[in-house]
Design a protein around this nucleic acid. Structure first.
Lengths: 338, 338
DNA sequence: CGCTTTGCGTGAACCGTTTCGCTTAATCCA
DNA sequence: TGGATTAAGCGAAACGGTTCACGCAAAGCG
């Protein structure tokens, strides 16, 4: 149906090699150049990237494998990655493994089948095994938001320990000592890190860590909601709560609203992840804000760098780890205790 | 590097045709079947979908072109489309044209270059011209959320008129007559429709339409914010406001919070688009909720249907338009006037 | 038993590019 | 002037699959 390079040959009388040279910016005589351009115009010719991909062994497509699409965090990440890659003429093929480790491994094979030139992923699994096939293919891999201990990869991380420490420190600075955290369980890399930051802050302020103030569970709205209710029902209830991710923040706020608990009067709060929430919740919520555009941008740029390198001889490279700082969005959800 | 079908031939002594037949589920003797399976296993062979794509003239990849990624609406749409397509072994390549009409047309060509088998898109442009190249290629196209008047396409829409009418009717039922709307300008398909619904509701209740209560502008947080402030500053200010999309709802709420206006005591509100907001805003916001999963699902399924059909003879088909109803999420943000 | 069918396998052409090695003519310079 | 260099073009062989037309043997059948 669509025109091919052969149709252009028939029209111009030039050889395929010359036309290919034209398409790829080689030296072609002005008159031939003109003839080819005209033929392309008239035939509505467009390079068949599939055929080109087969010939060059490069698809100019990057696979982006994420755990879920259902939060703004992901939307922003994918959006920015796509934009930057696209500016360098790479396509982005997305896969959502829906937090399913089995599916996650399948998707890797799916992407490899499509011969993507690289993979950017937010891992779900606890170890790097599922990536082995991609590693064997020697394509660049960039990890986002979490990383592995058993094998080294290019990774873009956020300083979770420091982010959590900082959040708790703010509460301490306001005079709080009975500080709770609602967080993920130990299987989650980010959850472990944030809990560590929480403990660090308390320890360095010589505040005892109270086990019943640590609410581990899934990174879900439901966990935030239930845990907040439990904390509020305690007889020695905390005076401040640190919500350690987006869903948990959402759930926690829902519980507070439902029980008509006034904040910061009755309880002080600080949330995580989503800048937008801080705008819309009243009173304005204190927030630890992740630099999502930067994360995405760094990931895309590191990927582009690796792709460029792999053209050159330098076969193997030393994986880089980039750790980004978070920032604090001030709100009105923390009461100062005298 | 990676193993090919020829490596399998060398190992098994079978012909390429037989191996291909095996890969595509044809009849192969059990012993040969076993031999091929073993070779695949040992060589870590994976079908090169690029080569297959060239041979079959099908990429098993669908292009999804959207206007922006920066709202939950899009995340949910892309997520659900990707999931369903993936279940049928199609990959999803996403492009974000960032509301830029020029870029939008470029992306279409980019996708056509990649030889996608179909395109699902949320149009930005006002007319279908930019899609012409895709139409010429005779690949299925499915439009989401908005459609064109100048040319007919498969479209999945929401009943915007009825959604807006219903929202305003709720306000009327609560005794309101001074009802404002903050909406997009006439260049936006959905904005026109929603404004029409607003007018319909008022007319059928014999309420005069007050021009100063209609705030047209961009579909942005800023427009919602500014317009809300203006409405609040009016001397004959409305008793109720209908926010007609997500960003506007967000901006409106921000203005309300900032000016410490109590709702529903001082003003009644109903928002649009984002179910999550209704959970987290206190008092709970009334909302018109778009059935995002259904929109995405219908789009993906219609696409799959077209892809299947195009295998058969039935060359041309009659475009379908599917109009989905919205639903109402009750809140506490509307005061009943006696 | 001879004829048709069916099951399985094969060689070769093809999909639409890129790229390698080679030719030819023009240009340069000692 | 003539050998070396360079620019531009060409033919043909990849890249890794699918598919068509055909061959052959075993099975089915009146």
């Amino acid at each position: 149906m669509a025109a091919t390079i052969r149709d252009i040959r028939n029209r111009t009388g030039l050889s395929l090699a010359t036309i290919s040279k034209y398409l790829n910016g080689g030296n072609v005589l002005p008159e031939n150049r003109k003839a080819i351009a005209e033929a392309i115009e008239e035939l509505h010719y467009e390079v068949n990237e599939v055929a080109r991909g087969l010939a060059t062994q490069k698809s100019r497509t990057i696979g982006v494998l994420i755990q879920t699409f259902d939060n703004i965090f992901m939307g922003s990440i994918v959006s920015n990655i796509e934009r930057i890659l696209r500016e360098h003429n790479y396509g982005t093929i997305v896969c959502d493994c829906q937090q399913d480790k089995k599916l996650e491994e399948e998707e890797i094979h799916f992407l490899l089948g499509k011969r993507v030139d690289g993979i950017i992923t937010i891992p779900t699994a606890g170890n790097a095994g599922y990536l082995q096939a991609a590693v064997d293919r020697k394509i660049p891999i960039v990890l986002l938001d979490r990383t592995f201990t058993d094998q080294k990869f290019d990774s873009i991380l956020v300083d979770n320990v420091e982010a959590a420490r900082g959040a708790v420190q703010i509460l301490i600075d306001h005079g709080h000592t009975r500080i709770a955290i609602i967080c993920g369980d130990d299987s989650e890399y980010t959850a472990r890190e944030r809990l560590r930051g929480y403990c660090t802050a308390l320890e360095s302020a010589n505040i005892d860590i109270e086990a019943s103030y640590i609410k581990r569970g899934k990174l879900s709205t439901a966990h935030g909601y239930e845990s907040m209710k439990e904390l509020l029902a305690m007889k020695d209830r905390p005076s401040a709560v640190f919500f350690s991710n987006y869903e948990i923040t959402l759930g926690g706020i829902m519980a507070i609203n439902e029980l008509h608990v006034a904040f910061p009067q009755e309880i002080s709060l600080i949330g995580f992840d989503n800048f937008m929430l801080s705008k819309v919740i009243n009173p304005k919520l204190w927030m630890v804000n992740q630099p999502m555009e930067t994360i995405a941008q760094q990931a895309a740029e590191l990927m582009l760098k690796r792709l460029e390198e792999s053209g050159k001889k330098g076969e193997d490279y030393e994986p880089e780890t980039i750790i980004l700082p978070t920032d604090m969005v001030e709100g009105e959800s923390i009461r100062a205790l005298s």
